[in-house]
Design a binder for these strands. Sequence first.
DNA 1: TTATGTGCAAAGCGTTTGCACTTTA
DNA 2: TAAAGTGCAAACGCTTTGCACATAA
Lengths: 137, 137
Amino acid sequence: MSAEKCSRQTKQKALLLEYMKNHRDIHLKAEDILAGLKQQQEAVSKATVYRFLKVLEEEGQIRRYTLSDKVPACYQYVGDHPECKKHYHLMCSQCGTIIHVDSPALRAFMAEIMEKEGFAIDESRTVFYGLCRKCRK
Amino acid sequence: MSAEKCSRQTKQKALLLEYMKNHRDIHLKAEDILAGLKQQQEAVSKATVYRFLKVLEEEGQIRRYTLSDKVPACYQYVGDHPECKKHYHLMCSQCGTIIHVDSPALRAFMAEIMEKEGFAIDESRTVFYGLCRKCRK
DNA sequence: TTATGTGCAAAGCGTTTGCACTTTA
DNA sequence: TAAAGTGCAAACGCTTTGCACATAA
């Protein structure tokens, strides 16, 4: 089920996408999504959730965050917030808080990398991991 | 085997530490270390490698990088001067190539973020995703 | 001697996949 | 009806762990 072949409308896809949109303010683990759908009597199987999540990620409708390899990935709907893609994200490895940032220094770095390495950074996918003020104390 | 209880000298620990020091210029996956030691007729078991690597990481002698949860972590010896080895990673979303970078602009951004947001960026975990020169064509 | 370290194999755990069944178009 | 999607359970791959044996101090 690659993105371009994901052409048929199904109940499961609609339910999952709606669930993601309804929770766009938080990051959800696959487990949370499974449980959430089940709780509203609209269970979707684990395999389908992972498969469609992957498609949505490839399409850019949701973003997948990896806090660490010790912990499950989490997902967030960003489809209707294109402006989010113009910012970088700081994510606290400990509490999961997400902070949106941008700065001239970062733009300069992007330009520098493009010139030196020919590498085009995708800011919609890049996340700075670290510890937020609260968790550093 | 926590750091403070790792008190006895063993052949295995010496071999592993020496191996890490001898390859301090590259990122090694656990698998590489296992294979490397085995090849020089000094095999150390997988369990021991993972256990001692964890101790060394806690002690700050080596750094553990988790570039993605899809791919094994990699390790690098940084000795007593971990600051000297800091760098960021560019990873091509398409071919997986990893490029190491650092720049004053990025350092400036880090300092700015620390001041403004109180956020301490962990560069060993931060990866810039995008497309490398080759894949952009 | 005895607490600590090692090796082996099995277990963990999030995620993916094979396959038969169901559904969309 | 036939191509695409789903659900289930089993497989995956990296890493960790239980346990019996080995070894440093």
